[in-house]
Design a protein around this nucleic acid. Structure first.
Length: 127
DNA sequence: GCATTGACGAAGG
DNA sequence: CCCTTCGCCAATG
């Protein structure tokens, strides 16, 4: 949890009061995703201990665009391995391009062999 | 301050 | 097996 980049500065009140919005935690985990690997919102949520509140992870990613360095949000997919957040990128095709650039095959807005490429922080990082 | 929504997930019908 | 509902927590209207 090195807050290398430091909070987004938009910590919107209460969340910062608890302990650095867990947004930072999300960003940090996402940045640690090895190239060519992907993970899911649920996995990150599980790593954070929120378990099923994967929604918050997605919500946190909403500020990822403002985070520095930029968070490889293209590696974060839903449990289906679908590029759900592609619409939130600069261009709808950017997410797919980034994944293809990492040798990750994308077919029909879904990552091929998602299970094989799946990278679970709670498992790989061994909390 | 209450109601709705949101890059999700799991369980139930 | 597909569709619906609930849960989660925070932000926005």
């Amino acid at each position: 949890m090195r807050k290398t980049g430091k909070p987004v500065k938009k910590e919107t009140a209460r969340s910062v009061n608890k302990e650095y919005s867990f947004f930072e935690n999300v960003y940090d985990v996402v940045r640690q995703i090895p190239k060519g690997r992907v993970t899911s919102f649920g996995a990150i949520a599980n790593y954070l201990g929120t378990r099923m509140s994967a929604r918050m992870v997605g919500w946190a990613m909403n500020g990822a665009h403002n985070a520095s360095p930029k968070v490889p949000a293209q590696r974060v997919l839903n449990r289906n391995g679908m590029l759900t957040g592609k619409a939130h990128f600069a261009t709808p095709t950017q997410m797919e391009e980034l994944l293809l650039n990492e040798n990750i095959k994308v077919e029909n807005d879904t990552v091929v062999d998602f299970e094989k490429l799946f990278w679970d922080p709670a498992k790989e990082l061994e909390i």
